[in-house]
Amino acid sequence: MIAKRIRLVAVLAITLLFLLAWVFPILWSVLNSLKTDSDVLAYPPKLFFSPTLEPYRDVLFGSASILPNLVSSFVISIGTTIITMLMAVPAAYALARLRFRGKKFAGFYVLATQMLPPVGIIIPYFLILRNIGWIDTYQGIILIYLSFSLPFAIWLLVSYFEDIPFEMEEAAYLDGASRMKTLWRIIIPQVRGGIAVTIVFVFLNAWNEFLFAVVLSGNTVRPVTVAMFNFVSVEQTLWAKLAAVSVLAMLPVVILGIVAQKNIVKGLTVGAVKGGGRR
């Protein structure tokens, strides 16, 4: 009985430790974003302090405002999401439902493109975009973001399309609908949920991307993940402001993550299940 109780306490302690370990760095950033710089740097670290919104006011409306960077992040992420979905939805439908020669190969190709290390894509892309003057442009970044968002979106959507019974299409054909009408009026409305989940993940991945952004961004287009570096330099770190920027960069994805909570495992493991044969 006592052994059981000790075990229970141990388990509780360990799990709580993990919970704390995951929450703390995020929570700590939030707390620091509400401090003055001297409070941030206090030793020992201050858990209780008089909160201020000064850091947020500074990073949003101060001289080095990151508002343009937040706008950049949103434009890039939303643009990527729209273009990705416009291409991925029809492609995923074809891969999931239509019969044609080379379908297996096409599916494999989509999967294989994800194997390319991003650094191997950015080197040639940098050279090409430099030649056509697309560095530091939205179209340059959004285009290259398709390299990872498209395969991901296609595979995630395929799994949703496959859940719809074939009779749906057959019934629609017999009701006199064309293939396009069937797709638009019958099939797509039934995968609305899957499309929403895919949108969340595509947005999330675009928002979080860093390597491409750091190479291709400049003074006009600079997402917030890259702009963060303005607050840390060799000479000095603007602690509280950095915390505020981090929180602002985290906010949209955390909200989306919690909204998409139930589908997160499916979103994270997409493609892998199909990858090397069936489960």
Partner: peptide, 27 residues
């Protein structure tokens, strides 16, 4: 719910948070 938090964050932001508020000397 808590497990979702780290995985949805940008690795760049995560790196920045750790570099400063977690691993900076003393504080």
């Amino acid at each position: 719910v808590v497990a979702i938090l780290p995985v949805v964050l940008s690795p760049a932001v995560v790196g920045m948070i750790w570099r400063t508020f977690m691993l900076a000397p003393e504080f």
